[in-house]
Amino acid sequence: MHRMSDMEDYTHYLNDKISSLKHMLELSVDVKTGNMIGRIAQDVDTVAGVLDEFEKLVAKEKVLLTRLKEMEMFFQNELKDGRHLQDNIPEHMPRKKEPEVSEPPPCQKGPVEQQPAKQENIKKPTKRPIKEMEVITMPEYDGIPAYMKGRITYGQLNATVQIINTAVMGKYKILRQPVKNLNNHERQLQQRFKEAETKDTKGNFFVVENDLCEFGQMKMDKRFQGILSMLRHCQRLREVRGQGLTRYMLL
């Protein structure tokens, strides 16, 4: 606002000086002394100086306008990128879970029965949460050697991570169920899961090829072997062999 005000002041000043010069030139025809000519010369010099300042102000305004356009373009690109990211969030990225809202207990009418006192200092055994493999980050993917990645994309790699997690969850949910709660097929699976365990896998979560086929419908082809090499490189799993089985143990 100050710059625009300065430019307006210069414009009014120049207009006043130009009008004054025209008037003096008209009067100089009838004046024989040199005083009027000297005054005109001084005004011309003043106007010339003002013009120089005006040109400097115009040049500054042009530079400022160019910078503002560059900033506008920058923020437009940032806004476009942000909207693209918002509309294209990868499915494998973890999402914030909404907190569960518990309903208040209904009001009770009539006499309240005395509840038996709870026994204290009785700890129920708690089960460890089923471990899931963390998704591969973009810096980790970029750090995988090119010969190991081949044509496997970032999305394909994390899609396999999700399949492995699905197999792990399905397997250990059955393992933790009482036998009486399982159907015949699930009982056979539970027995197979237990037979695949060894002292090296004790306390860890792992799957074998049959588990991946059962729960994830995964094809055990050359491409899958390449993805396993990438996951080992990123320290997401390690292989434990024995008894004719390859166990993929989560780290």
Results as ranks from 00 to 15, higher is better:
Met1Tyr: 06
Arg3Trp: 06
Ser5Cys: 01
Asp6Lys: 14
Asp16Glu: 14
Ile18Lys: 13
Ser19Tyr: 03
Met24Lys: 13
Leu25Tyr: 10
Leu27Trp: 01
Ser28His: 08
Ser28Leu: 05
Val29Arg: 08
Val31Tyr: 06
Asn35Cys: 11
Gly38Lys: 14
Arg39Glu: 12
Ile40Ser: 10
Ala41Met: 03
Gln42Asp: 13
Gly49Arg: 11
Val50Phe: 07
Glu53Pro: 00
Phe54Tyr: 15
Leu57Glu: 15
Ala59Pro: 01
Val63Gly: 02
Lys69Val: 10
Met73Pro: 00
Leu79Asn: 10
Asp81Val: 10
Gln86Glu: 15
Asn88Pro: 06
Glu91Phe: 02
Glu91Cys: 00
Arg95Ser: 13
Arg95Tyr: 06
Lys96Ala: 11
Lys97Asn: 03
Pro99Met: 01
Pro104Glu: 07
Pro105Asn: 07
Pro105Tyr: 05
Pro106Cys: 00
Gln108Lys: 15
Gln108Trp: 06
Lys109Met: 04
Gly110Lys: 07
Pro111Gln: 08
Val112Asn: 04
Gln115Ser: 12
Gln119Thr: 12
Gln119Val: 13
Gln119Arg: 14
Asn121Ile: 06
Lys123Met: 02
Pro125Lys: 13
Lys127Gln: 08
Lys127Asp: 06
Ile130Glu: 07
Glu132Lys: 13
Ile136Phe: 08
Thr137Leu: 08
Pro139Trp: 04
Tyr141Trp: 12
Asp142Trp: 07
Ile144Phe: 05
Pro145Met: 05
Ala146Asp: 13
Ile152Gln: 01
Ile152Gly: 01
Ile152Phe: 02
Thr153Gly: 14
Tyr154Gln: 07
Leu157Gly: 02
Ala159Thr: 14
Val161Phe: 00
Gln162Ala: 04
Ile163Leu: 08
Thr166Asn: 14
Val168Glu: 03
Met169Leu: 15
Leu175His: 02
Leu175Pro: 00
Gln177Asp: 04
Lys180Cys: 03
Asn183Leu: 04
Asn184Ser: 14
His185Lys: 13
Gln188Pro: 00
Gln190Ala: 13
Arg192Cys: 06
Lys194Val: 06
Ala196Leu: 10
Thr201Ile: 14
Gly203Val: 08
Phe206Arg: 05
Asp211Arg: 01
Phe215Cys: 02
Phe215Glu: 03
Gln217Met: 09
Lys222Ala: 12
Phe224Asn: 02
Gln225Ile: 01
Ile227Ala: 02
Met230Leu: 13
Leu231Thr: 03
His233Asn: 14
Leu237Trp: 00
Arg238Glu: 12
Val240His: 03
Arg241Lys: 15
Gly242Lys: 06
Gly242Glu: 06
Gln243Cys: 11
Met249Thr: 10
